[in-house]
Simulated assay, not measured.
Amino acid sequence: MNFKKKIFSVLSKNEFENLTLDIFHYQIDNNKIYKNYLQSLKIDPLEIKNISEIPFLPISFFKTHCIWSSKTRIPDIIFTSSGTTGIKSKHYVADLSVYINSIRKGFEFFYGPIEKFKFLGFIPTDRKDSSLIYMVKYLIQETIQNGSDIVSSYSNYKYKNWIIPDQKNVLIFGLSFYLLDFIEKMEKNGYKENVIIMETGGMKGKRKEIIREELHNILKKFFCVKEIHSEYGMTELLSQAYAKKNGVFRCPPWMKIYIRDPEDPFIHIDNNKIGGVDIIDLSNYLSCPFISTEDLGKKINDYEFEVLGRMDFSDIRGCNIMTI
């Protein structure tokens, strides 16, 4: 079955559920780690008839195992977490074109054609194995004719020379600590209607962690914008969720969020209750699309969710999480 084509053409809830069950059975046939995990739980895959019954693999397995369900043997690329403490996660990506499709189609689902944007990446350039940096570089390369670029040095330009009024929307992708470093060194500029500031990551051990609201207030004041956007992604996933205001995220059609009971990881709880974040990301079908993360969150409704922090036992990683 051509999953790659079907994943990015999902439109309805019914299509998502049918495709998810097909990919679940593909996982059982091709993902040895996931199959063994279900066996250890004494779960018979043949008895699973609804996607709500599908078990989620703890994300920590990406630190200790090669999570692989491709029929090929050599990955196109291996993404590695920043891993400021402990063992780093590794995501073995069998087909890089799936990630590229997810980047582009996911962004355009929320913001429209990338050709309408000038992207500025406030990111480090010394990591070749970061999925986030790969994503930002891809968006920049695809729109380089619009003046898109990586901002890696603050000493040779003024902010006003980068955020110029033109026919393109300017979107700044910035890691939190990079954005804070930037505004400490640059002069303040006026408000521009076509500028979007998107924070996309924690402090990664570079600065003291602060709550998202405080970070957003600092950024809004400096950049003179009404809202700060956010991106939610991680090394172990190939899709991203986006928040356009107030830290309320939405997923693309091939991604779904569940919230698990903090006392029982095999039970999902109702909307507006806080628990662990479980994710179905169908673009992960060549690794594992059913991931139980170490993030705390709550669902507002079937389409919107918030990320509230980290589980107490988990280490701080490079995904878009602020401490509670």
Rank of each mutant, 00 (worst) to 15 (best):
L282E: 09
L237S: 05
I291G: 03
K298N: 12
Y258T: 05
F266D: 13
V248E: 13
V225K: 00
I211Q: 14
N246H: 14
I274R: 12
M255A: 02
R260C: 13
R250T: 15
R212L: 10
G276S: 09
F222V: 01
F223M: 03
I267T: 15
K273I: 12
R260S: 15
F223D: 06
K298M: 15
M255D: 00
S239H: 06
H229T: 12
R260N: 14
S292F: 07
S292D: 10
M234D: 02
G247L: 03
N246P: 03
N246L: 12
P265V: 12
K220V: 05
P265N: 13
N246G: 13
S292K: 12
N272C: 09
V277L: 10
Y258Q: 06
I269H: 10
H216S: 14
H268Y: 12
P262S: 05
F266C: 08
D295F: 04
C224G: 08
L286I: 06
V225S: 00
F290V: 09
V248D: 03
T235P: 01
M255L: 09
I269T: 04
Y258G: 02
K298P: 00
D278N: 14
E236W: 03
S292I: 04
I211F: 11
N271E: 12
S292G: 04
E263A: 12
L215V: 06
E213V: 13
E263P: 00
N271D: 15
D261M: 08
F223Y: 11
H216W: 12
A243T: 08
D270Q: 13
I259F: 07
K298D: 07
L286R: 03
L296Q: 06
I228R: 06
E213G: 09
I211H: 14
I267L: 14
